[in-house]
Design a binder for these strands. Sequence first.
DNA 1: CTGTTAGCGCGTTCAA
DNA 2: TTGAACGCGCTAACAG
Lengths: 337, 337
Amino acid sequence: MDKKPVTIKEIARRLNISVSAVSKALHDDQSIGLRTKMRVKAMAEELNYEPNQTAIFLQKGRTNTIGVIVPSLVESFFPQVISGIEEVANKHNYVVLLGQSMEDPEREQMLLETMKKHRVDGILISISKNTFQYDHLKKIKETIPLVFFDRIPDMKEIHYVACNLVSGTVQAMNYLLQHKHRVIGMINGPEKLFSSRERLEGFRQALSKSRLKYDPSLVVNSDLSRESLIRAVQELLASKRKPTALVAFHDNAAIEIIEYLKSIKKDKTIPVVSFANLPMSSHSVFKPAASVEQYPYLQGQKAMEVLIDVLNNKSSNEAANSAFYKIILDSRLVILK
Amino acid sequence: MDKKPVTIKEIARRLNISVSAVSKALHDDQSIGLRTKMRVKAMAEELNYEPNQTAIFLQKGRTNTIGVIVPSLVESFFPQVISGIEEVANKHNYVVLLGQSMEDPEREQMLLETMKKHRVDGILISISKNTFQYDHLKKIKETIPLVFFDRIPDMKEIHYVACNLVSGTVQAMNYLLQHKHRVIGMINGPEKLFSSRERLEGFRQALSKSRLKYDPSLVVNSDLSRESLIRAVQELLASKRKPTALVAFHDNAAIEIIEYLKSIKKDKTIPVVSFANLPMSSHSVFKPAASVEQYPYLQGQKAMEVLIDVLNNKSSNEAANSAFYKIILDSRLVILK
DNA sequence: CTGTTAGCGCGTTCAA
DNA sequence: TTGAACGCGCTAACAG
């Protein structure tokens, strides 16, 4: 199938000149005669020469490769982020090494190590929802630039890009409040997740702005599995103050929740608002009433831009290293008609 | 942030032994004394030594990286394929370099070249729907093992994994025929696509088995854009023999088609069957009546297994190189209740 | 058992 | 203007 790839050395041999001359000629170095330059290029063309990047990687100490770790691709939110990442990455001559943690912290750690071995120049990561132990992240961070997106761990001194879920949640709440709902329940994600805490914060802020009192029993955490979501709904519906509307963690959760509500004939009376991870959720039979757009594509772009910036400034003065990017994008409530 | 990574050489220096001794010790080579082995390993541990893969890549002439090129990640079918690929790849110590062609042949070609530069060991690719010119594929194929999946170009001497869409289409047709439909229309994809031709073949086979005559005017090709799909529906509905049921290219197309049919109040009378690219299409308001499951995850697994096989046999006798894998998975019609 | 030597393919001094 | 020599980090063939 494939014969030996042609090297710079081969070209040199055929032309009876030195390797370094060839190397320089190919790079349009000043110090090479036009004549030899032409000859070299012609020969390179003829032999279909292609530089061996792995040699260059070794020599330069960088691979122009960035690692991207997402919890899973089925969540449709992430493919969009990746698209954004890829667009910016390619534009800057980077290539994307992909890994899915499958929400498994051990796998996540393994992926980080593999990528490190492969000497990626940097890593973009959205942590698994079961990752509560950040030692491996902290360790990797010492060696490789890390930028977090969407799912941010509770760590200091990190770069990250995320959506302002606080304001998004406030918007979602206001929507429900304007529709006269006074008892609103929230089915949140895992308690330790940064984004869960943001939603909670928004929940409280919205209530307080409307001079309503915050009732902790109206907020239930879940691990986002089907069972745990249903349990959460049941718990809320069983509480003394039965909510007349719900805020769900995201569209996937919302769909499960609405499906359940429908099964008990409550879907018409209890509107659910959520967070837009699914572009197609507007088609769904179990469509939420409204959803907070989180601009995954933009998040991907921004995260990659941050990484590139970090990469470019890495070698410069140490002082700059004490600065951390914290990019917060605005989210926006979208009413699904 | 990161200081100089420690090398094998550094360990050698500190221990006052040769580099190769260290290398061998780390690899548990027979020819190294237990004592030195221990010392080396201890030191490696202490200094937090990690082998520089890029150096190993250069030396071994392989990167343990495979390139995966898909038309786009938004099509939800592909993320699933990728998951299958990743599972097998990781198990065999390969890592995935991802690229989206965005259905753009030029971008596709660029990605192929980038991956070649990065010296991936092999490439898995599903071609863009606008790729009708295979020169770049043929060229790459000479150098790097290529395995196609799902969207297969019309080329000889290639490895590929795909679903048996012929039988899938026959099943789809039989479903409609059993429901007393005698005039069935097909909205196919781009004519040059292998999978379009398979659908057409299944369409004809099913008709002929039922002793019905094949009417070319009942098959319309489309580029799968919204506009072209609607045009296709209009064309079919305007023809002399108006179809009472439709076969769509895939769920995405089906959803657009049904949405349109609904807008002209025909969705109840004209059932649409299609091909399952969307796991969630069963939730959709514009849900097709049935859909042919194409087992994306399995396709990904198989494709990767084929590639690994090819990779392992590459160096062996030339005769083996004349054999090409053509793996056809069975598809199965799923009735969406 | 251990160390020396020679690459892998390329870029980059430093001499010539 | 050109070439020789060295280094990137590691493995492997060959001597001691």
